[in-house]
Design a protein around this nucleic acid. Sequence first.
DNA 1: TATTGTTATACTCTATAACTATA
DNA 2: TATAGTTATAGAGTATAACAATA
Lengths: 161, 161
Amino acid sequence: MTSMAPSRTEHDLSFLLDHTSHVLRTRMAAALAELGLTARMHCVLVHALEEERTQIQLAEIGDMDKTTMVVTVDALEKAGLAERRPSSTDRRARIIAVTEKGTEVARRSQEIVDGVHTAALGSLPDKEREALVRALNRLVTGHLETPAEAPQPVRRARERS
Amino acid sequence: MTSMAPSRTEHDLSFLLDHTSHVLRTRMAAALAELGLTARMHCVLVHALEEERTQIQLAEIGDMDKTTMVVTVDALEKAGLAERRPSSTDRRARIIAVTEKGTEVARRSQEIVDGVHTAALGSLPDKEREALVRALNRLVTGHLETPAEAPQPVRRARERS
DNA sequence: TATTGTTATACTCTATAACTATA
DNA sequence: TATAGTTATAGAGTATAACAATA
């Protein structure tokens, strides 16, 4: 969003990526909200369906904190789309089991996600679309693979009770 | 970040745009931090240098709220990079004047910004780089021009004093 | 001792509301 | 009445710390 260059938006990669990802995110959020889902809920549903996975594993896949995963799974349980089940091999861990209703919702939400992506990519000429996806994949696996660590502020210890 | 597709990351446009923009943003923040700047501060400096502009005008350009602009200008003043000056035509408004030091810092921060962008784009083959920029510009001015409005939550009135 | 999941909470960010002074 | 800038603060989002159960 923040314009990084004086009157040369066309080559401001920061602006271009921020703007497109932000707008796409709002589109996705609005589309998924029709099913009562957030992007995170969709993400968890889809990956929990693939195979038996614990909260930690799903958090890793979705690049969420484990505490964020707790509230996401809470929401899925409350909506009747998934359930926590004890792991048979590790009594600390919970397997996220997708319900029948959750399976159906995930099928529809995946259609929505694909539709939003297809609509965006479909607005581009074939050659350009292919090059865009190729270039982004090259950046994601190459020069823009890992974030620079931010100058993190310190956090005070919690008050003892 | 949130993976939107089951084991098909290569075509997950949400993931690709979110990841690249996020990583680029952290790179930019880290690089600008060396000068003691945030992306917003750089943005305001650069556009305040172009011509006489008020806070509101600069907020518009940087897509910031006017209250966010207040803290950004506070930071610039505190660092001795810019000053608030009364507008000669509207006594409500403040012109953001860049100091000599601010002018020099802006020159260097623009070099940093350009360098980060050039490094990222330089990791791509020529044809792919050109197509990426063309495709992103087409999306920004076309299908992904305007955000979908989020289902905004209500805000309670402030307590009267 | 380390790890999973949980709760509680602190912190950041940003937007909203109300306000002052002008227009 | 409307607008520029300010202050105070609400609210969302998320990360940190501590903890209980288990490995």
